[in-house]
Every structure is written in C-alpha cells, then in structure tokens.
Amino acid sequence: MNIFRLIGDLSHLAAIIILLLKIWKSRSCAGISGKSQILFAIVFTTRYLDLLTSFISLYNTCMKVIYIGCAYATVYLIYMKFRATYDGNHDSFRVEFLVVPVGGLAVLINHDFSFLEILWTFSIYLESVAILPQLFMISKTGEAETITTHYLFCLGLYRALYLFNWIWRFYFEGFFDMIAIVAGVVQTVLYCDFFYLYVTKDGKGYRFSI
C-alpha cells in the first residue's frame, strides 16, 4: 500500500458515494447513465469473486464489499426506485459493442486461463470503457450537473492515481501487471478531455461537448 493507491481507493469510494447521495437527495437520476452503472456493477461482481476464495486483508475485503454493495444500490435506485426520472432515451449507447469485444479479449489475453482469472481480466478491460455510456450521454445532451462532474472527476482521478501507484510499485517492489497498466492507461485517457473541461470550467455545472 502506498499513498497513491490509498488516495486512489478513497477517491473511487468518494465517487461512488457522491453518485449515490446525489440520486438519493435529489430523488432523481436525471443525467446519469444507468448503463454505465450496470457495467460497473458487472465489473465489481466479476472482479471480486475472489472474496469467496481468498482473504487478503480486512481493508481489502471491506472495500470490495462496500464497492459491490454501492454499485447494486445505485443500479436499484436508477432502475427501480427512481425509474420515472431515468432518462433512457438519452442513454442509448450500445453496451454490447463493449461487452462482447471485451469478453473476447479477456479470453484471448490473460495471465492465466482459469475461470476466476478470466473474469478478473474481463473486469479490468470492461472497467476501462465502462464510463463511455455516461460520457456519450453527456455529449448527447450537451450538459452535466455540477455534482455529476464531481463524480466523474473523482472516478477519473482514482484511475490516474493508480497509474502513479503502478510506477511506484514497479520501482520499489519490482511489481508490474501489464494487463492492469494498459487498461488503466486507456481508462485514464478517456477522462482527459473531461479533466480539461472540469479544471478550466472550475467544476461548475455547464454545457459542454465531448
């Protein structure tokens, strides 16, 4: 554990909680892509199946349980509790164009051809592109609420911090995981355009295009 990893995890946690609270407090999921949230729920589910097979640390277990729980709670709020506010017409990204190629890639390129490892690899690849339906939705409507931009910023910051974590681990532990690194770079790059807008617009709610 290093400082980049810890702050990255906390940033990820903050993003998840910001989104949950935003939906809960406003009683609305307007402007939020339910498809991206389903993809994140799939990501956590397929990645954290090792909860059942191996114990790493109390921190690790707690965070995994919280991430999974929050992901499903978010999906529940969007598709059940506040379904009337869900903007399905603008959430029109075709997720099969992500899930199918990513599934194929996970079977082809992985560290070990075993069930859990392929699911882990699938989750890594899928996470790198899971935000695309959300970014697509924002570019389609041309606007995002302030709180939604904070959510996206924390989510992007988390993966950017993980890149520093991997640099740290490479130099000080000789550890590197090429699959995670390449996917992490892709994921971070997808946020770059957004980061630029977030910083230059001072994080205020705004109309913008991607």
Partner: peptide, 10 residues
C-alpha cells in the same frame, strides 16, 4: 513479474 494467485488491488 506478476503472480496470479490473488490480486491485492481493488
């Protein structure tokens, strides 16, 4: 290198 028996990152 990478060891496959468990991933400690989240």
């Amino acid at each position: 290198g990478i060891k496959v028996d468990g991933h400690d990152e989240l």
